[in-house]
Nucleic acid binder design. Sequence first.
DNA 1: CAGGCATATAACCGGGCAGGCATGTTAAGA
DNA 2: TCTTAACATGCCTGCCCGGTTATATGCCTG
Lengths: 101, 101
Amino acid sequence: MVGAFAVLGEANRLRILEHLRGAECSVGELVDRLGMSQPAVSKHLRVLREAGFVSSRIAAQQRIYRIEPEPFAELEHWLAQYRRLWDRHLDALERHLDNQE
Amino acid sequence: MVGAFAVLGEANRLRILEHLRGAECSVGELVDRLGMSQPAVSKHLRVLREAGFVSSRIAAQQRIYRIEPEPFAELEHWLAQYRRLWDRHLDALERHLDNQE
DNA sequence: CAGGCATATAACCGGGCAGGCATGTTAAGA
DNA sequence: TCTTAACATGCCTGCCCGGTTATATGCCTG
């Protein structure tokens, strides 16, 4: 679990995921849109791939990357353990707002 | 956002959060239960506090730490942007299982 | 007010990670 | 087959971050 967070704890990797969220994408497209060097992009993609966040498919000379859902589901599961906390928080907020009316 | 992930991308900080998930806790208790040095615990608590994950209250010579819900709510919100992905994934899984019956 | 807890902070050190540059690898096209 | 395109990988470097040790700060008790 900590590994997943460590992978996401890097700005450029988050940007890559956001770009892949809309549609799958080749490495070159990511290089152009993110304005970073190709080796840097490839390295981040490797990290994301080994953590399961993305997978790649070969199309001619290109590698098309896309998001894989499993790690996000695991994040969701981890977060669920803490959900009661902010549920209570929202409840308290609601009561506060209700009282103000 | 990336900051929150960076904060969670550290094993001992996750362990601290898990301990605080059950009940609020003093620094000394965390030191005992996690088996790490007191300065290390204090540093991690500082990082968690500055990121909003925990807050502290003074009780005599002790500082009692507890979890704050906001950052978790933000995580939830961030994750929601990707939820459609694994919703589709779960749908596909269901269809797969249905077909197997 | 002196002394002892509980905790924070400072200074330092070592490992790991992100970035850049150079090069390897595979596939398409002439 | 030679070249070029698209991408991966190795090596090096600088920086950040976590840990330890030592010290400061604040509070309670006698």
